[in-house]
Design a binder for these strands. Sequence first.
DNA 1: GCAACATGTGTACACTGTGAACTTCATACA
DNA 2: TGTATGAAGTTCACAGTGTACACATGTTGC
Lengths: 228, 228
Amino acid sequence: MGSGRNSYHHGDLRRSLIDEGLALTRSRGPRALGLRAVTRQVGVSANAAYRHFANQQALVAAVAGEILEKMAAQMREFITADPSPDPREQARHRLRAVGLGYITFAVSEPGWFETAFFGTEMSDRQSTGSDDHDETPERHETASDDHDEAPEHYDEAPPFALLVEALDGMVAAGVLSAERRPGAEWSCWSAVHGFAELVVHGPLRQRESVEVMTLAARVVEDIIAGIR
Amino acid sequence: MGSGRNSYHHGDLRRSLIDEGLALTRSRGPRALGLRAVTRQVGVSANAAYRHFANQQALVAAVAGEILEKMAAQMREFITADPSPDPREQARHRLRAVGLGYITFAVSEPGWFETAFFGTEMSDRQSTGSDDHDETPERHETASDDHDEAPEHYDEAPPFALLVEALDGMVAAGVLSAERRPGAEWSCWSAVHGFAELVVHGPLRQRESVEVMTLAARVVEDIIAGIR
DNA sequence: GCAACATGTGTACACTGTGAACTTCATACA
DNA sequence: TGTATGAAGTTCACAGTGTACACATGTTGC
């Protein structure tokens, strides 16, 4: 059948829940992504979500995954063709675009950014807090019964892959020496992610976005110069 | 009288709540800092906390403030006297120590680090979510415009002040040019905070701490080289 | 047509933060 | 020496949360 919801069964509830999760987090961040809130919005009972997600965290992880895809897509748009014929300058431009694209996404979609990187942390269940100290042996990852589900693998996330590509391109173009290549992703990722973090819930929060992007350009420039 | 709790009144409940908050967040992060959990641990009713804090966020903010003090203290310990007589090298060493001290704190006290920078975000109340029409009966507004509540001033936080000091020292020592000084704090803060973030809930989470500190040294070196 | 199965509903429970009214105690003042 | 006052802690209540369990409903293979 089509994706209508004219009857008892919904059609594609999983898709609808994720879509509504995207809408909620876009405007109000990860704390708006309650299990009851999402199901209420879709017009379905709260427990219906458990047919498609092991728990709330799994829903958040699924939404976060789609946000990371959107982020990578916007970053790719950011990497337009470079007018410069010099491959050295092209490689540098590409790396710059990766960094600025990352930050641009965080600035223009703070709710999504927050959800992608801190969403699952926000929705943790409590653990009784009994007085004797426990070592918290949690780590129950719900075994990922479904196909997708890559909740915490930032290092496999599409934006990270773009960064790695750009850095490899730097080496290929001869702008970055091979022995300084390993570890460079952590410097770049740290600077760019840290800056986004400062914008989203740090001291740069209420600054004008043009001022923010000026500072962002400085940060990106500095870290590219720093990895050498 | 002393700080005993032998009678109906507690003595210094505010202090005890913060101390217990520090203990809880140290081992289990900001999500363990529930209002009921803290008061239960102290042995007092839940609403007793409201005599000392406007709400849960205020408690978290108070705990976060004390953590930032501890962080700055550990960073200051990290800045030991430099054997080098060269003031240029001293200034650089100082900046390096600020960065590595910051990261070291995050690595050795992840629960505290998370609480200091993300604690208040974790405990936000929801707002009904029905963007349709609201027929909520009269809602008495608490109108708490009265007392301040400034929980988010990272840029006035002690660790940030240490960074600014170190950068000014770089200029004074002639290692950093005056016209590249403005904005340099954002580059450094971004790189260091971003790296700490990757360690605390990013892809570097379960790496050995010696390996983490090796990578940290690289990041700090890169960003110092980058600001020029 | 009917069993098996997947999907959505209803009820219930243990939690949470917080408001309002009540109780206890320490202290200033007659 | 009382006694009013007010700060500090208690109890009760309420709305809201995630989720476990039993049940209802619709789809699909035989």
